[in-house]
């Protein structure tokens, strides 16, 4: 087994898991809403990007358009539907499921079953008898950048502090003058934009079709569930852990066993760590501080 292969495979998996999960994780972690339409949000980002690129817009700009389209859609949906369901989190799952259904079929009606695809930019890295797509390396760098950006946003900015205050204690936050309504809207829009970004980034590597969203769901849900309550740390840790496991098992036994190993890991982690990977980190930190 070529170690570079394994490294690339890991980086690739890490990026895919982190980017699949991050939009879902922000909305879930900050608001408790499980967005079952998450995959379709990603699909909208991919469509926005592909259609713009086909219209002659340069790819980076097309990606920005993809993100914006998804963010605007997130804003509209939050204002009209999601906000009515904040005290009914489980109903919001049904609502987002319905939104996903409408989006998939709506795109199919409006744009047909397929659109011309864009090709992957940036060429190839060759090493020995192997070669690898440069763009995929870029993707893993972007995944890290997204995590870093969110870290700064939620810990170093005024907005981040208000947002975290809103999650921890909405009533107190409101009493202290935080417009919690606006916080929820912003969070939902950020989550949507991140889903759109995932779609935009993967549009040149995947088949952009109305049903494409489902191919992100497994990784997204698994990563969120084992990540635990702290969104950023959780997503990073689960991306790392699952990425390694998937890369190892896929490399040794094939794609199917990679997937199964990842899912079984998720079940074991949930059973052993009721607060997910972040819970484990907190425990360790507390114990070290206690000594």
């Amino acid at each position: 087994m070529n170690p570079l292969n394994l490294l690339f495979l890991f980086a690739d998996n890490f990026a895919f898991i982190v980017l699949s999960a991050v939009g879902l994780a922000v909305i879930f972690g900050m608001m408790g809403v499980i967005n079952l339409g998450h995959g379709e949000f990603i699909m909208i980002g991919a469509y926005g990007t592909t259609l713009s690129a086909n219209a002659g817009v340069p790819l980076p700009l097309a990606m920005v358009i993809g993100v914006l389209v998804t963010a605007v859609m997130g804003f509209v949906l939050e204002r009209t539907i999601i906000r009515r369901l904040y005290d009914r989190l489980l109903d919001s799952m049904v609502a987002t499921w319905a939104i996903g259904l409408i989006l998939t079929q709506g795109v199919r009606i409006a744009l047909g079953n397929s659109i011309p695809q864009i090709s992957t930019p940036l060429g190839t890295i060759a090493y020995g008898e192997f070669s690898y797509s440069t763009y995929r390396v870029v993707l893993s760098v972007v995944a890290l950048a997204v995590l870093a950006g969110l870290y700064v946003l939620f810990t170093r900015t005024e907005f981040g502090i208000r947002a975290r205050a809103t999650i921890q204690d909405p009533d107190t936050a409101r009493a202290l003058g935080v417009d919690t309504d606006r916080m929820y809207t912003s969070t939902f829009v950020i989550g949507s934009a991140l889903a759109g970004l995932t779609g935009a980034l993967y549009a040149p590597t995947l088949t952009v079709v109305p049903g494409m969203g489902s191919s992100f769901l497994v990784e997204a849900f698994v990563a969120v569930v084992i990540g635990g309550p702290s969104v950023l740390l959780g997503t990073t840790l689960s991306g790392g852990l699952l990425g390694v496991i998937d890369a190892l098992f896929t490399n040794l036994y094939g794609t199917f066993f990679g997937q199964i190993a990842m899912l079984l890991t998720a079940i074991v982690v949930i059973r052993l760590l009721s607060n997910g990977l972040t819970g484990l980190v907190e425990d360790v930190r507390n114990r070290m501080e206690g000594e």
Binding site: L122, G123, T124, L206, T207
Partner: peptide
């Protein structure tokens, strides 16, 4: 179908 773009970009 994603295979084809991926194999091309991987050379």
């Amino acid at each position: 179908t994603s295979f084809w773009n991926q194999r091309t970009s991987a050379g």
